[in-house]
Nucleic acid binder design. Structure first.
Lengths: 109, 109
DNA sequence: ATCTTATTTCTAATATTCCGGAAATACCGT
DNA sequence: ACGGTATTTCCGGAATATTAGAAATAAGAT
């Protein structure tokens, strides 16, 4: 991943409201969540939510599929994984790695 | 880590210039890098660099130690690791994990 | 065709970010 | 104390982000 792409994704997630949106979608799993449901859950104006979703969609972190009159939002794991890869690559240079990785995973050879 | 703290760190890294700064500091390793050297390297105005460093220091991702007249900057691995932990926790919910982790590490039981 | 629900786009106000020149500060050497 | 190098803070301007009400669009149901 290019630096600018990583920065764009980090910026998209670097807003509390958008991070909440993304986290909610991750927790919604494969099933995803409708925009309206998301709005109730987060209690923000529909237009505001729409703008934030646009930002997340713009960097590929969220996708939408229409189902009748409702739009279902899904977190895009691949994009997030790409971003985490980038961060791990930037961060594990000295051999030290994030606790979550050290505890849940074991280094290969 | 709280959501707001994660968002603040993501926002700090979500600017191409700041991400470049951080990456450069990570690559500089334990030794760190002087503000002046960083400025030559990135070719930006001193005041601009100072603003960006302040932002990174503000969220704990960078630390400074004075050495005579020069200020040495260091990337703070702990803070970055905490952030990556947060992201992995938000993202690995369904058991799928980022390629970098899958390839370099092996899941523990 | 019309109505209803769901969502986005338009518009605008306010707030924040980004940038860099100029001035101020910090520290060291003499 | 003075001069020089290193860095930050002050200031202002341009650009962008955030928020949300109102209007517009999308899709299905009657």
């Amino acid at each position: 991943m290019k630096l600018d792409d990583a920065a764009a994704r980090l910026e998209a997630l670097g807003n509390p409201t958008r991070l909440k949106i993304y986290r909610t979608l991750v927790r919604a799993g494969e099933e995803g969540m409708a925009v309206g449901r998301l709005q109730e859950r987060l209690d923000i104006a529909a237009s505001t939510l729409s703008h934030h979703l646009k930002a997340l969609i713009g960097v590929g972190l969220v996708t939408q599929t229409r189902e009748g009159t409702t739009l279902i939002c899904n977190a895009s794991y691949d994009e997030m994984h790409g971003l985490i890869d980038y961060m791990v690559a930037e961060c594990c240079v000295d051999g030290s790695c994030p606790p979550a990785i050290v505890s849940k995973f074991k280094k290969v050879a």
